[in-house]
Design a binder for these strands. Structure first.
Lengths: 258, 258
DNA sequence: GCATTTATGATTGACTTCGATCGGATGTGT
DNA sequence: ACACATCCGATCGAAGTCAATCATAAATGC
């Protein structure tokens, strides 16, 4: 009625297309309020647009047809965290001198470092991570996998055999990941067997570097994997609180922010 | 009906995909908290995604399906006599008793056996083959990877560290592959380091089973990996000459034709 | 003007999703 | 080999969502 408030269907469709383009996923209830129409109308619209192949309907809403994982929005979000990890990995890479023996722990942050290391043929890599080994399986530096029992969830090698092998090795530098760093400096992870392996590595490396993005500070997981006093360097993305900086100083840990 | 706090299944699925993509492995309990849903819901999601072939469920979580399990040279070889190798693997599987410790050598023939072993949870598998380990990484029996240096071409672990680990282990049965069996009974392979590892395993297994299709008889590769006198059983596809049967008898090797 | 067409909103019963619970299966540690 | 902890899958009730039907209102055609 009147002149201004009434909108044509085609106009509404364009607004739906727009929302779908930027948000990739839309909810019926949401769009109802935003467009000021009833759910029935909106459903009819979505039905129409689906028939034209412009979107795909799902329970509770609709998704863009080309919402493959590699599409912009998701890539942005995933890439955002990935870029942090990438920068941390790059900083880690710069700390490795030629000819060194490098230990790589399991964990997604360290996995990025493994990928970076493919260009460094001048070092020797030792790891208990099957995923890291797979990264380096195609090309890269000499790679040694420690032995041990395969832990399915983490895809790492742990257990007594791992310790037995680690006892025969030592490292110039070890890069470790963690699930959490508690305020008292305890490094924790979810898997006891893995925690034990981590702690054992700490004692066999000349220099220990912990790779931990912001989200790890204050988090506490189940099993103790060592203490920050055994760590020499922490590489973190920016934005660490003054409180945590103070704590790191207390534990004589060098902080590297990227 | 709240406002926008409710999330669509698709959104959650995408977050799961995202986590799986960056972390390769996810835990049910972890994802529950991160996504703010019950374990039941998450299980349903994982079930759904597994049905679509987007991931693989394991006890306690899920792992990404590894699409790049295909190495050019290797896969070609595997494809050549695929059916023969499959039949050989099946025959090999039947020789494994419950509770045994099984060693799997590198090589495409043995890799088929690893695949078959995914259904056998009643044994322990030890291997120096990264590919075999990857085969068993998703589900299967307890798996132990020996340590050692990663040899890129064959994707196996070899070298002094491997021998060091093998010294601490012994096996009820060992399944070995080979590049060739010479008329005088020498088992050969192309890579000395690998040959050395093979020969070392022969001495640590109660029973040695050689998996060798027809094409291996009479072939001679560079490095000696042992002698047929150390082998207890050979599993081969049909069509072995009388001459070779006679030789196998000489070396006291039991011949199994499939 | 009156009937027809089109767009929209409300109602209702069926369906889907979700979370809690429980018995049973699966690993884990001693 | 045993006991213990954890994890799994099935079931059920509650809540949200869907699709179909009917009613209303504006636009169109005669």
């Amino acid at each position: 009625m009147g002149s201004s408030s009434k909108t044509l269907p085609v106009e509404r469709w364009n607004r739906i297309r727009e929302a779908l383009k930027t948000e990739r996923v839309v909810r019926v209830v949401d769009l109802c309020r935003r467009l000021g129409v009833s759910s029935a109308t909106l459903r009819r619209d979505l039905e129409e647009l689906e028939a034209r192949g412009e979107l795909h309907r799902v329970h509770g809403g609709a998704v863009a047809v080309d919402s493959r994982l590699d599409e912009p929005v998701f890539e942005d979000k995933a890439e955002m965290a990935a870029r942090e990890k990438h920068r941390i990995a790059e900083a880690a890479l710069r700390r490795i001198a030629s000819g060194w023996t490098v230990y790589l722990d399991g964990g997604s942050t360290v996995l990025n470092l493994a990928r970076e290391l493919r260009t460094r043929k001048d070092v020797v890599v030792v790891t208990n991570s099957l995923r890291a080994a797979m990264e380096l399986a195609g090309e890269g530096p000499r790679t040694i996998l420690v032995g041990g029992e395969l832990r399915r969830l983490s895809q790492t090698l742990v257990g007594p055999l791992t310790r037995y092998v680690l006892d025969a090795l030592q490292f110039d530098i070890a890069f470790m990941g963690t699930m959490g760093i508690s305020p008292d400096g305890t490094i924790t992870t979810t898997e006891p067997a893995e925690a034990f392996t981590k702690e054992w590595v700490l004692g066999r490396a000349h220099q220990v570097v912990l790779l931990a993005d912001r989200s790890k500070y204050g988090k506490v997981a189940f099993a103790r994997a060592g203490h920050m006093k055994d760590v020499d360097v922490v590489i973190t993305d920016r934005g660490l609180s003054a409180e945590w900086r103070r704590r790191l100083r207390t534990w004589s840990v060098q902080l590297v922010e990227v």
